[in-house]
Design a protein around this nucleic acid. Structure first.
Lengths: 117, 117
DNA sequence: CACTAATATAACGAATTATGTATATATTGT
DNA sequence: ACAATATATACATAATTCGTTATATTAGTG
């Protein structure tokens, strides 16, 4: 199988949930599998492989368990891409705040209500 | 074709680039198509449909053009999901700063170098 | 209305991805 | 060495996705 890029890796809801679980604390593969009863054991193993190859998780052997942990650095491409759009949110938040600040005409409302010096 | 969710919609590199183009300013479909010579006209039209159905772009008819514009609100699911991981970045930035602050062993360096009271 | 330009949809094949069953590998305990 | 547990891989197959060619739709223009 060809190596999957980060964006495709996180396009699957199960894999995103796995990452969410791992963001709390590391877990062995079996425990992750049990958290998704609708997914077979080999199915989960494959999801984990995808996440592994995309650099989103790390594995560590502990006796006969494979303990998976989040490797958040692997999300860097997504973070970098979406960061370009964060400005839109901020702009919108600003205008939302401005709106909430201005239930009336600007001339009718004090500059900073209930904020004593 | 089944309606594609946001994460799947942005899993395609061409579609991400289309969004990047639209983040600068709106453009008619044809112009977007010409920006990707490796994609046929119907191919681009389909990408645009996916983006449209995922709520990532909006269309407006202007004479015989279809002018596409970014609808950044459609990125909210991605933004919300990845926001949960932003803490990891911040934590790491903190430790990176701490590391850059500490070129020597902690015991060898003052608590707050060059910060007079 | 015929003609053209711009874009969308249909139909289809190739490539990729998803998922289950069966099997293999590895590690630990007896 | 053998059995048991935990996990991975192989293989087959179904479902999605992507891209192409051909065709339809929609809106202006003469």
């Amino acid at each position: 199988m060809r190596r999957m890029d980060t964006f495709t890796a996180i396009s699957d809801p199960t894999r995103r949930q796995v990452l969410d679980l791992l963001s709390r604390h590391e877990r062995p593969a079996g425990e992750l599998g049990r958290a998704f009863p609708s997914v077979s054991q080999p199915g989960m193993s494959r999801h984990l492989r995808v996440l592994r190859e995309a650099g989103l998780v790390r594995v560590r052997k502990q006796d006969r368990r494979r303990v998976y942990s989040l490797h958040w650095e692997g999300l860097a491409p997504v973070e970098a891409w979406i960061a370009k759009y964060r400005g839109f949110w901020e702009a919108e938040l600003d205008s939302l705040e401005a709106f909430l600040d201005s239930p009336t005409k600007p001339s009718e409302r004090p500059k900073r209500p209930r904020t004593p010096p």
